[in-house]
Every structure is written in structure tokens, then in C-alpha cells.
Simulated scan of single mutants.
Amino acid sequence: MIDPAKTDATATVDAARPRSARRKFQFVIVAALLLCAIWAGGWFWANRIASERIAAMKADFVAEGGVLGCNAESLGGFPFKFTLDCAPASLELPSKGLKAQVGAMEAIALIYNPGHVLASVQGPLALKAPGDLGVEANWTSLQTSVRVGTSRLKRFSAVADDLTTTINAPANPRLPTAASAKHAELHLLQNDADATALDLAGTVDNFAATIPGAPPLPALSAKLYAILPGALPELRDGHVDPLPAWIAAGGQVKLGQLSLDVGGFLANASGDLTVAPDGVISGKVAIRVDQLEKLPDLAETIHPGSRDQVAQILGPLSAFLKPVQVDGKTWRETTLTIKNGKVSAGFIPLGRLPPLRLGTAAAIAGS
């Protein structure tokens, strides 16, 4: 038999379940709407703060005599990022004789990672610098990325494809008049083991340059990885000047890899170097080479009249080159000693490295 009391209780429970489910669903909807409202309010508040910061930076730049140009500026990116678009973008510092303009620029900051800023720049670039230096450049892609920690730069990266430039430098006729690269990258990173050390990595593929009065140079490809201890000081007012800090820390260069491929001549170098406040280089470098027989013709192309001199050096130098197997390839290896800019392999002098131009900041740091 059916118990009427149980039947009524079951009906009551069944009627209560839909009401309970509706309340939960309504609560989820209200919570979601409230969260969206808080998120939107926070985004617009942060957007206003960002707008004020950008306006303050512009005001400081103008107060120093600078001029900023942006014909079409917009700040957006709701709801998960902030974007700043400017087309075309230009800046000018008349006191320093500097003026630059690009076709367009877009900067992106992720709202959940405000210390990471991405930027994309569209060409062409028109640059005027002191000494009547003029540069025009274009590319198919140019992107940068900056990550900043609480007190130091974490990472800076720049990647460019199909880069072409023309250079006009009346004051320095030795500069190239044109340069190009199929691909180029530059990465500056905070070292994992030493927060004050800077990791430097870069690569360039099919780099070519035209130098006035010189024959066409062969295309060059290169890779670089090095550590610069002490070259990553703390940020001060959003600015950092690594050169004086690096020189004051000893100007050390821990060269992990420098590889070159130019005209079929291959070279790899690694070692420890130091750079003095006056730019003079010292240290020891292990170097591996391949296709050494191509070096005299390459030297003649770069510096006409040097073929015979380089060929004469290669004879005795070969005695210091021992064969080594690396990645299934036979290289010739030796160690170069650099003392106050003078380069030698054993007792054979190879020439002198010109001092680096470090500027007055490095000289002050080393004083």
C-alpha cells in the first residue's frame, strides 16, 4: 500500500530541490556579475592611473626640451591588457640634435603581469643624430619585450626580420652606407646565479654592409653569448646605466660563445676578458677555426693589400693549431693571449685590438 504521508513528504522534497537549484544558479550569476563589475572597475581605474603616468612622462620629456608626436593615439585593451597605439610616432631632442620617427608603434602590458611590456614597431624609421648622421630603415617585423622586477631589469629582447638600412654620415666616411640582415636578435637577461650580472645573447643571419671605397663584403652570420658581472645595477627612477657599474666591477667579460661564418671562414671563440676604463682589452681566448685557407682572400676583401701579410702569418700559426673533433667536424684550435690590446698566439704576434669607445661615464667609473 502507498503511504499518503510519505507521498506528501516526497512531493515536498521534490518541490524544494528546484527552488534550491535556482537559488544556487542565481547566486552564481550574481557573483559573476559582481566579479565582472569589480574587474571592469579595476581595469578603468588602472587605465586612468596608466594615462596619468604616461601624461607625466610626456610632461617630463617636454620639460627637458623634448618633443613627442603621435597623430593617432589610443589607450585601450579592455578587459585583460592595456594597449597604447601610436601612428606615426616621433620624438625629438633638439638640444642633443636627435630626431626619430617610425610608421607606428603598439605597446601592450598584461593586466595580470604589469612588469612585462610588449611592443611592436612598424617601419619605416627615419633617424637624425648629431654629426649630421642620418639613418633610414625598414623591416617586415620588429618586436620587443621588457620584463622588470622589483629593482632590476629581468629581460629585454628585440627581434627583427628582413632589416634594411641606409646610412648617411658625412662626418665619418668609414661608416657603412648601407646594411641589411635577414634576421637579428638581441637578448639581455638577469643571470640566474648572480642578480647583478647581465647575460648577453645575440644572433644575426646574412648580415651585409656596404663601406665606401671598399669592395662588396661577404655576408656574415654570427652568434654571441656572454656574461657581464656587475652590469645590472638597481633601477633608479626607472632608469639604469649599466656601463659605469660594469667598469667599476672590473669590466669582466665571460665569453661563452662567439661564432662567425663569413665568406666560408668559420671561427668560434670562448674565454675570459677584461676591459679597462680606457677601453683596452686583455685576457685569454680559446679559438677554433675551419676553412683557414680562405682567410687571406677574406682579409684582402676587407683590407686591400693585406693578403700576403696574412698568408705569411698563417704558416707559423698553423704550428700552434691542433686538430679537435667537435660535433663530428674537425677544427683547428689554439689559445690567443691578449695583453693590453696586443694579440699573440704563443710567441707569434697577430696584431692589436683597438680600444673600445666607452665614453666619459666609463672613465668616471674607473677613476
Rank of each mutant, 00 (worst) to 15 (best):
V146H: 01
D272V: 06
V135L: 11
H187T: 15
I49P: 00
R357V: 13
A181N: 02
W45G: 04
T177M: 00
L217K: 06
I54F: 03
T150N: 14
D327L: 07
G77Y: 00
V285G: 03
A178V: 03
A59S: 14
P4H: 05
I364S: 04
A32H: 07
A169M: 03
G77A: 05
G97L: 12
D261S: 07
D278Y: 06
V148A: 03
K329F: 02
D161R: 07
A119V: 07
F265V: 14
T301R: 13
L356A: 07
L232V: 02
G341C: 07
S318K: 13
E333L: 08
A40I: 04
L33Q: 06
K58Y: 06
P124Y: 13
L188K: 01
D14F: 12
Q26L: 15
I281T: 13
P354D: 05
H116N: 00
Y225A: 15
G103R: 05
V67P: 03
A363N: 10
K81I: 00
L243V: 10
V240N: 06
F156C: 01
D161W: 05
A311C: 00
K6F: 14
G97P: 05
H183I: 03
A46P: 05
A50N: 09
V262N: 08
A286T: 14
R152K: 05
A209P: 02
K99F: 04
W139Q: 14
N168Q: 08
N172I: 14
